[in-house]
Write a protein that binds this DNA or RNA. Structure first.
Length: 590
RNA sequence: CGGGGUGUAGCGCAGAUGGAAGCGCGCCGCGUUUGGGACGCGGAGGUCGGCGGUUCAAGUCCGCCCACCCCGACCA
């Protein structure tokens, strides 16, 4: 490709609304352009890199038996109504009506379509197992797109779906994806770890997220250095510090004027925070038989811990959870700042599972300026649900080995879910098993966003001058620069010939044939970040050489003109080997 | 959806107290340059986010709306 005709120019300055390096550099280098919040065009350079990433995914999916297909982006609403997600999912779903006034859905994901296909195509255990996948555009009207390509509304995903007759079969395909995903990320030059995660809107039994660790990540992870336990904070468990049990003392009302926070309360009474109970009020939308009702939820955690809303949502099987307003709190008879579970009716009380093991706590008295001492679970109040609903934090103890854990930020670049029979049951995907009985197909779903992956690779591989693409992802393998000098003719002809020869050798080359000054050309080459650079100039040709430089190294070397093509081939192989070495087998951790 | 911020040329920005829309980079033409973002001369490019109001006069003051960014809630 000639740079003089490349669509998409480089910018000296990044637009002011770009903040993170991958966003700034991808825009400056001409890879992406923004159309609206969370909606981007992939320019020709980005398209080439995306295609490479997607081909890596294809190879790894094919290697574990995947069959590629393409499913539609627009779905009839009926399908989503059958699984109930039409009702469960809120404004994140893109909905519109077609010309006949039929409700339509923009695909957020494709479980419904897969299940629909399966019920039409799969009738016998003899047809299973199956692995299908596609690479398709999806729309999720995220309330907050941000960080360039990291979090967008329209995106392309590699999505695979496993279909099995047995749970062992699902486990096998799940584990195959686990390793295939590590292969994909390693081949893309991206270091990742797998952590256990929440199943979210997908539902199902088990999920892992593949995390690229970076301070700009939006997810917080808990890791145990000792035994390797790793989990998203949304679901991370930990060993809770159990206080010595005391005999229950009589409940006692005490004046605590102007004391509203746990901090103040602990100071005022001169007791540790873990001797207090903290109340949090929320409104949960709970769906039952496709009918959604709002329930007032009174959650109680020990004063030294914080509520984890994901855990609470899961404990409640709620669709949505939001903080209650002051009016709503007063309406149920609770007093903000002095709230107590003692003597409240008509609310759903959820307590953390450490609370029943903690005796004689201080809690609100439901009266302005007063608290109760010696509140005991069971004697003074009861809960509708007792569950683990608190968030793990730095230095909390590992639930497996008891070692203190630490927190780290990450970007979720891929996920794998054991869906089980949720969708197949809802949509009636059954097959006839050996025993002659109809059984629901057991499903798994596995996704990787290609744009997010591209941005993560850019985030991992850049310096102050620009991008430094891994050879497997780079838009072009070679960046060829011509510096014509005073007497243009010889240099020009040599560079043109070299450009043709490189192309004919099957090497991907971007040829900077523009009439620009050397500084501009070198800077653009650094910015775009193709791995190998070749410079043809009067100076080099005087020695019958061209200059060679790797983007990831400082040294420049002079290579005889006639030797440059084999040299480039050798360098490409070297770079490919460097990536290959990072491909390793990763033990499956449950 | 809550909190904060920003909208003036393709990009980055300046335009106190209302009084003729500017700068740098980029772009077009001609010439000189040519190993790390060159120089001279000449040009093109704007509904100042939108609508309404105040005023003799609004980029500037007031109101409403919209878009985009950041923090949170939420999410691949």
């Amino acid at each position: 490709m000639r740079m003089s005709h490349l669509f998409g120019r480089t910018l000296r300055e990044a637009p002011a609304d770009a903040e993170i390096p991958s966003h700034k550099l991808l825009v400056r280098a001409g890879f992406i352009r923004q159309l609206a919040a969370g909606i981007f065009t992939a320019m020709p350079l980005a398209k080439r890199s995306l295609t490479k990433l997607e081909n890596i995914m294809r190879e790894e999916m094919n290697a574990i038996g995947g069959q590629e297909l393409t499913m539609p982006v627009v779905h009839p609403a009926e399908l989503w109504q059958e699984t109930g997600r039409w009702y469960q999912i809120g404004s994140e779903m893109g909905r519109f009506k077609d010309k006949n006034n039929r409700d339509m859905v923009l695909a957020m994901t494709h479980e419904e379509v897969v299940a629909d296909l399966v019920r039409k195509e799969i009738h016998s255990y003899r047809q299973l197992p199956i692995l299908i996948y596609h690479i398709q555009t999806k729309w999720r009207d995220d309330p907050r797109p941000r960080a360039g390509l990291i979090r967008v509304r329209e995106f392309t995903m590699k999505d695979s779906y496993s279909l099995d007759a047995t749970w062992e079969g699902l486990d096998k395909q799940y584990r195959a994806h686990y390793q295939a995903y590590f292969n994909i990320f390693h081949r893309s030059g991206l270091p990742v770890i797998a952590v256990k995660s929440d199943v979210g809107m997908m539902g199902g039994q088990m999920a892992h997220e593949f995390m690229y660790l970076t301070p700009i990540g939006e997810d917080t992870l808990l890791l145990c250095d000792d035994c390797g336990y790793s989990a998203n904070r949304q679901i991370a468990r930990f060993k809770k510090h159990i206080l010595p049990t005391e005999p229950p003392l009589p409940i006692e009302k005490i004046a605590t004027p102007e004391i509203k926070t746990i901090e103040d309360l602990a100071n005022f009474l001169d007791i540790p925070k873990e001797k207090t109970a903290k109340a949090v009020f929320l409104i949960a939308s709970i769906t039952d038989n496709n009918e959604t009702i709002d329930k007032f939820v009174f959650a109680i955690v020990r004063g030294d811990m914080d509520l984890n809303e994901t855990k609470l949502t899961n404990a409640l099987k709620a669709k949505e959870l939001r903080p209650a307003t002051e009016e709503e709190i007063l309406a149920v008879g609770a007093v903000p700042g002095y709230a107590s579970p003692v003597g409240l009716n008509d609310v759903l009380i959820v307590v953390d599972n450490i609370i029943p093991k903690s005796s004689n706590l201080v809690a609100g008295a439901n009266e302005e300026g007063y608290h109760f001492r010696n509140v005991n679970y069971g004697r003074d109040y009861k809960a509708d649900i007792v569950s683990d609903i608190v968030a793990a934090k730095e230095d909390d103890l590992c639930p497996v080995c008891g070692h203190p854990m630490h927190t780290i930020r990450g970007i979720e670049v891929g996920n794998i879910f054991k869906l089980g029979t949720k969708y197949s049951e809802a949509l009636g995907c059954t097959f006839q098993d050996k025993d002659g009985k109809d059984k629901p197909v057991i499903m798994g779903s596995y996704g990787i966003g290609s744009g997010r992956l591209l941005a993560s690779v850019a985030e991992e591989h850049h310096d102050e001058h620009g991008l430094i693409w891994p050879i497997t992802v780079a838009p072009y393998q070679v960046h060829l620069i011509i510096l014509p000098g005073k007497d243009k003719k010889e240099v020009q002809e040599t560079a043109e010939r070299l450009y043709q020869n490189i192309k004919e050798a099957g090497i991907e080359v971007l040829f900077d044939d523009r009439n620009e000054s050397p500084g501009v050309k070198f800077n653009d080459a650094d910015l775009i970040g193709n791995p190998l650079r070749v410079t043809v100039s009067q100076r080099s040709l005087n020695k019958n050489c061209v200059e060679f430089k790797r983007r990831d190294q400082k040294e420049k070397t002079m290579i005889p003109l006639e030797a440059i093509i084999p040299y480039l081939k050798k360098s490409i192989t070297e770079l490919e080997m460097e990536i290959k070495e990072k491909e390793v087998e990763v033990p499956f951790t449950d």
